[in-house]
Design a protein around this nucleic acid. Sequence first.
DNA 1: GTGAAAGCGCTAACAG
DNA 2: CTGTTAGCGCTTTCAC
Lengths: 349, 349
Amino acid sequence: MTKRITIHDIAREANVSSATVSRVLSNSDYPVSAKLRTRIQQLAEEMNYIPNMIGKQLKTDNNMTIGVIIPSISNPFYAAVMLGIEEAARKSGYQVLLCNSLQDKSLEEGYLKTLVEKQVKGVILSSISGNCKLLAQLLRMGLHVIAIDQKLDLPDVLQIEFDYWRGGQMAANYLLEQGHRRIGYVTAPLDRPSRQQIYTGFFAALQAAGVELNEALVQVAGDEKEVYDGIYEFENGKRLTRQLLELEAAERPTAIFACNDLTAFGVINELADNGLNVPDDISVMGFDNIEFSRMMSPALTTVKQPNYEMGKLACSMLLDRLRQDNNYETGVMLLPQLVVRNSVKQYLA
Amino acid sequence: MTKRITIHDIAREANVSSATVSRVLSNSDYPVSAKLRTRIQQLAEEMNYIPNMIGKQLKTDNNMTIGVIIPSISNPFYAAVMLGIEEAARKSGYQVLLCNSLQDKSLEEGYLKTLVEKQVKGVILSSISGNCKLLAQLLRMGLHVIAIDQKLDLPDVLQIEFDYWRGGQMAANYLLEQGHRRIGYVTAPLDRPSRQQIYTGFFAALQAAGVELNEALVQVAGDEKEVYDGIYEFENGKRLTRQLLELEAAERPTAIFACNDLTAFGVINELADNGLNVPDDISVMGFDNIEFSRMMSPALTTVKQPNYEMGKLACSMLLDRLRQDNNYETGVMLLPQLVVRNSVKQYLA
DNA sequence: GTGAAAGCGCTAACAG
DNA sequence: CTGTTAGCGCTTTCAC
């Protein structure tokens, strides 16, 4: 194992001071004679010099890395967000530390602390805990936080919101337009604001259309710990659909809305297992528009949440903040978009 | 923004030296009187002390983070690998920097350099370039590398291999058993060793069974730059399937094998677009067993490549190396497993 | 059991 | 233009 080369090694070799070497190798605009400059660059090349950023960081207090905390990268929604984040980060020379909170509050907190210990100056967070005590403290210490996906009630946290309420409403209205009145609603636990908002938006639209709430058609998963092996949502969809299928034929929904695409896949799968065809026997609608929703057959009708764009936007807003250290920008609200495909069919009563 | 607290601040407050504070707060086993110990811990708590790992790192040369370079996190196969890696890392107090090489050699190299500059001591790499020059240099400088998925021909790189050849063979044999003889082969460019091995394994099995190679049935994607928007594989499957469908009816394959599940989804989708049902009209088989393969209908018959396990194993092997600094362990070869579902049907000539 | 001091690799006043 | 020097926050000899 060859010894690590430092600027001092190069300085000695070139008979200059390490300050000069630093000035050349860190692309400072400080004046250095062309002769020395090339000599040093050449030497650095020859000696396979690799700068030690830890030294630089300690001095400059800027480590060019941000943190991302999401529930699970195995959820393709967050994978797309992550890709957007990383892309924006790379373009600015930043790197990103990925943390999967796995829906575990203490893990989330632990990661937050570790990131700050590592002197990360910015974090993109899809919080499951909404732990404002810790977060407020970290903000006071200069951490910049962008909240995506889940709203955080802190004044200094920039929000990339998404209009879940309108998304839910949009879904309901589409199903109504297609003639559906007995609509099943299948959702993971309503513990996250996002899920609650979809829920309220959805039923507000139904109510506005004079469709009364039928509790038997609303299936909410229990609050048991979500084991995030990545297949949870799918199984959830299957399980809750089984419960809907226990209804008498006349009571059964003509369409089922699921709180996200993965859950919708579970719904469709369970229906197929019971010999029911989508959309001929029953219509299904999802939420998110993950890539796979268009790969399924039938291709899934869903509400688009711009995941990749959300990641890109979150990251560039964060980097802006880090660079200018201003807290003046305002948050943004991304809007849903209806994606009509083939899993919903007109219902003719 | 409150001032950052350092051990010196605490030392001053407690009327002790910073050395003592360090000994207490870094959980050193160095003897410190119980009285001072509790006093210091209490003070650190009160003052909201957060250690600065950069300072520690500069001294100890160990930053508790590893790097991961994969083609794209939007590919669910790598997302699962990543989840496994992160899980193993977390259990040992490590964090992970995620880098998407997007099938771009220069990006891959850039990341490798940046990681080393950041003093990362270990990297898990699914290389697309196989750039051994740079890698060899970094290894000499003490970097530890675990290669997953793609083989790297360097003695000091530990390999987590997967028997792609046998996987290809396994797929072919299954299709043969099911009575298929005219089998289409759809693959992304054969530029990565993994794809080549699946290919050779597959056709070795066909040959062994006396099935002659029909070049018209083999569709290899051109070597054009793969735009990694995550949907590439899917579109590729669609495009290549269209080409297969241009064959005269009698020449058409009775089954199609795709080099990975995403491509298989494209194949199925394109077949559906052409009014062909899977598996009734034509059978389709994938490779990888990503989670969605079981969510599709028909559920995809495929060859399992243990992705999550691969990530976990890679990470724990890497951490073993970092801790013991030994290069003695041997690599491992993970074996494929046939996953029979509903997308392949027996062919009765 | 505790403290003083050196130093990890780098940058940035300041001086020349 | 170039060099000297003083740290960034922490650990770790070496004294006491």
